[in-house]
C-alpha cells in the first residue's frame, strides 16, 4: 500500500475532514500544540528547531499508531489495557526473529500477524462469549507480562541485523515513524467516516441494540475492531522495536496508560460512540510536546508529573465545556 495512492484516495475526504475539524476537539488540541510551540519557542528558540520538532513527532509516533487502534476499541464501547504488554511481547518476538537470521520482512510482519491473533482471541471472548473487555485485557496483561519474563528473563536483544531498523529510515527526508503516523491516521479517519464498516463502529458503540435493529451485527463489528486493533498494535510494536539499536525485551512501564490517555484526551468518548483518530494522534503529539516543553522551560523535574496531570485535566475540561456550549447553542 503506497502512501501516494493513499493520499489520492483520501484527498476529497481530507478536505471535508478539515472543514469538520474547525470547532472540534481536534481544533482545541491543535491550538494547544501551537500555543506550546509558540510560547516555549519564544522562550527558547531551540524548542522549535527542526531537530527538536522531529524528535517530538518521532519519539511518540508508536504511541499515536497504537492509539488509533485503541480509539476504535474505545469507540466500540470496549477497552484494552493489555496493549503495553502486547507491544513489549511483539517487539521481543520481532527482534528475536531478526537476530536469528530470519528474513527482515518476516521480522517486520510476524508481530502484525501475532498481534492480530492475540487481539482476535480477546475480541472473540468479548464479542462472542460476552466477557467484559476490561476483564479479558486485565487477564491478558498478566499472562503476556508473566510469559515474557518467564521466556526472556529480560535478556537484551542486540546485534540486530543491518536494514532491520525500520523506524530509522528517512524516505524523502522524513523519518519513517512520521510517515506511518500520518498515513495511518488519515487512512483510518477516512475509513471510519466513509465506509459502512467504519461507521458501524460508531453505531455499535453508541447504541448496540439500535445498531442491531438497523442491520449491523455488533458481534462482528467488535470482532473486526479487535482484529484491526491488533494490526495497529503490531505496527506500533515494530516502530517501537526498531527505534533503537537494542530491544529491552521487557514490558514498557505504564505504556497502556499513555496510549489510553492519548485516545481519551483526543476526544474519544469512553462511553463509546464518539471521537476520531485524528484527535488521538494530535493528543499523542500534544503529550509528547508537553513532556519536551516542560524540560525546556526548566521546570523542577519533581513537579513534572503534577503539571502533566493538570494539563491533561485542563484539555479534557476544555473539550467538555466546548461540547456543552455547543449543546446550549442548539
Amino acid at each position: 500500500m503506497s502512501t501516494a495512492s493513499l493520499a489520492r484516495g483520501s484527498s476529497n475526504a481530507l478536505g471535508a475532514q478539515l472543514k469538520r475539524l474547525v470547532g472540534g476537539q481536534e481544533m482545541i488540541l491543535l491550538l494547544c500544540i501551537l500555543a506550546i510551540f509558540l510560547i516555549v519557542g519564544s522562550l527558547n528558540p531551540r524548542f522549535i528547531a527542526e531537530r527538536n520538532l522531529s524528535s517530538i513527532f518521532l519519539g511518540n509516533a508508536y504511541v499515536a499508531v497504537a492509539a488509533i487502534g485503541m480509539s476504535m476499541v474505545i469507540i466500540s464501547g470496549n477497552i484494552d489495557i493489555s496493549v503495553g504488554s502486547l507491544i513489549g511481547v511483539l517487539a521481543t518476538i520481532s527482534g528475536t526473529l531478526a537476530v536469528n537470521g530470519y528474513p527482515i520482512i518476516v521480522a517486520w510482519l510476524a508481530p502484525l500477524l501475532i498481534g492480530v491473533l492475540v487481539t482476535g482471541f480477546m475480541g472473540y471472548l468479548v464479542a462472542y462469549l460476552r466477557m467484559p473487555s476490561i476483564v479479558v485485557s486485565l487477564g491478558m496483561l498478566s499472562i503476556l507480562k508473566g510469559g515474557l519474563i518467564s521466556v526472556t528473563s529480560g535478556a537484551w536483544i542486540s546485534n540486530l541485523p543491518a536494514g532491520y531498523a525500520l523506524a530509522q529510515l528517512r524516505p524523502m527526508g522524513v523519518p519513517m515513524p512520521i510517515w506511518f503516523m500520518v498515513g495511518l491516521t488519515i487512512l483510518a479517519a477516512w475509513w471510519m467516516r466513509y465506509t459502512a464498516a467504519g461507521r458501524s463502529i460508531y453505531a455499535v458503540g453508541g447504541n448496540a441494540e439500535a445498531a442491531l435493529l438497523s442491520g449491523i451485527s455488533p458481534r462482528r463489528t467488535v470482532m473486526m475492531v479487535f482484529l484491526i486493533h491488533g494490526l495497529f498494535v503490531g505496527i506500533a510494536s515494530v516502530l517501537f522495536a526498531t527505534q533503537l539499536a537494542v530491544i529491552q525485551s521487557t514490558v514498557p512501564p505504564n505504556l497502556e496508560l499513555t496510549i489510553i490517555t492519548a485516545s481519551v484526551v483526543g476526544g474519544v468518548s469512553i462511553l463509546g460512540g464518539a471521537g476520531t483518530v485524528i484527535g488521538s494522534t494530535l493528543a499523542a503529539v500534544l503529550l509528547a510536546a508537553i513532556g519536551s516543553s516542560l524540560i525546556f522551560i526548566n521546570l523542577s523535574p519533581y513537579w513534572l508529573r503534577a503539571v502533566q496531570g493538570a494539563l491533561i485535566l485542563v484539555t479534557v475540561l476544555a473539550d467538555l465545556l466546548r461540547r456543552r456550549r455547543q449543546a446550549r447553542r442548539r
Binding site: 496508560l257 489510553i260 490517555t261 481519551v264 468518548s269 469512553i270 462511553l271 523542577s300 519533581y302 513537579w303 513534572l304 508529573r305 503534577a306 503539571v307 502533566q308 496531570g309 493538570a310 491533561i312 485535566l313 479534557v316 475540561l317 467538555l320
Partner: peptide, 23 residues
C-alpha cells in the same frame, strides 16, 4: 457536576495526584 466520565477524570488524577506526591 462537570460530567467528566469517571474513567477520564480518574485517569487524569491518576497522573495528577501522583505528580503532587512527587512534587
Amino acid at each position: 457536576r462537570v460530567r467528566v466520565p469517571p474513567l477520564i477524570m480518574t485517569l487524569a488524577t491518576l497522573a495528577f495526584y501522583r505528580g503532587l506526591a512527587e512534587g
